[in-house]
Amino acid sequence: MTHPALDLLRTTTAALAPDPDANPLVPRIAAGTAPRATLAALAAEQTWVISADRRAFEYLAVRSAAADPEAAAFFTTLAEGEALAGERLVAFGRACRAQEAPYEPLPGCQAYPAYVAWLALNAAPADVVPALTANFSAWGGYCATIATALREHYGFTDEACAFFDFFAEESPDLDRLAAAAVEAALDAGRLDQARVRTYGRLLQAYEAMFWTALSGTP
């Protein structure tokens, strides 16, 4: 028996999967050759990203609460997850001494949260759900690789790796909420699959910019 919502999420995620060779930094972290200064920059950039994304998801939840409660539940859960991730990020920043000097965020890293904020203001919330789901799949894979490398090559503790562990873990509840939101949108004829692909493509492009910008840090 087919499930149109799950099929759409799977095909969208597969279609938008990044080239494995497109990320210039994660393989260096995996090999233990990325300097600690770059890890510190990663922590600092994520401090900006997490707080911005949390507010964007909260706004998407508010926008969709009345007409699209399934999408609202998805975005509320995302916002709650960002808050938890932000708490775990502190230990990572401390481990790589990210707060020892003032830090100026890189435009290439902050393009991603800026676009998420644009989606929060302009996109139909239901169209954002599958686009974000596809992006989270790639992000989760990167986080799993980084979490392993931080332990094996940099000697980081479980506490310091908890931020990446959090995103690397599968989330059946979030998957269920995403499927429910997409199913409701499909049933109501509210899902614009062309826009989903556009939003997903841009999210993946800005994700790639994040890693490319970081790869140039000393």
Rank of each mutant, 00 (worst) to 15 (best):
A131F: 06
G155W: 00
A95T: 04
F163H: 05
A178G: 03
R36V: 06
T33Y: 07
L89Y: 10
G140P: 06
A126L: 04
A41T: 05
D192T: 07
D165W: 03
E70Q: 15
F156Q: 05
A37I: 08
P27I: 02
A194M: 05
G189N: 08
D68H: 11
L39N: 12
N122F: 12
T13H: 02
E45C: 12
A41H: 08
A111E: 13
A134I: 05
T148E: 11
L8H: 02
P35M: 14
R190W: 05
G81R: 04
A30C: 10
D187H: 11
A144Q: 15
E169S: 14
L42F: 15
Y154A: 02
R190V: 04
A52G: 15
R54P: 09
L8M: 03
G140Y: 02
D187R: 10
A138F: 04
E207A: 15
V196R: 02
G189K: 11
G155C: 05
T212I: 07
P107W: 11
T33W: 05
P35V: 09
A134T: 02
P113F: 14
R28D: 04
A85N: 00
A138R: 07
S137A: 09
L84K: 09
P102G: 06
Q193L: 05
P18D: 12
P125D: 07
F167D: 00
A73R: 09
P218H: 12
F164I: 09
A123P: 01
G108F: 13
F57E: 11
D165H: 02
A179Q: 10
A131H: 10
A22V: 00
L121T: 13
G189E: 07
R176M: 09
P69Y: 01
E152W: 07
M1L: 07
G93T: 00
A144V: 10
E207D: 15
A31W: 11
T145W: 08
F167V: 01
A180S: 10
A73I: 05
Y142F: 08
Y154Q: 00
L202G: 07
S64Y: 06
L78E: 13
D21N: 10
G93F: 02
A147P: 04
L177H: 05
V49K: 08
A15W: 04
R28C: 01
E82Q: 10
H153Q: 09
A162T: 00
V90T: 11
R94E: 03
A71C: 03
E58K: 12
C109G: 15
A67I: 06
G200C: 03
